[in-house]
Amino acid sequence: MYVSQFAVLAAVLFAMGVYGILVRRNGILVLMSVELILNSVNINLVAFGALRDSIAGEVFALFVITVAAAEVGVGLAIVLLIYRNRRSVDLSEMDLMKG
């Protein structure tokens, strides 16, 4: 197996995640796209760790998983709060900081 197989797959997933973040209006869907990006990074971490025969890749993939769990927890709490206050999770309405 070539490492580029994994890296290219990860890159495509990353690009999909970017697309999702930019185009989705629903807060939860944006969070899901973020998960796509994090997972693509994880693939890279583990793949390059295996390539260089280093355990660091796996360890940091674990850390990323942990951080992602924390991120989803807080992110969803925020989304729920927004929903409670505005009865909508549409991010394009969240522009009170407009210049």
Binding site: Y2, V3, S4, V8, A11, V12, A15, V18
Partner: peptide, 17 residues
């Protein structure tokens, strides 16, 4: 995506596990 894929292929194109 294009930039990432290009750079990956450029640097790691033929490295095997």
């Amino acid at each position: 995506g294009a930039v990432t894929i290009y750079s990956v292929l450029d640097y790691f194109g033929d490295e095997q596990f």
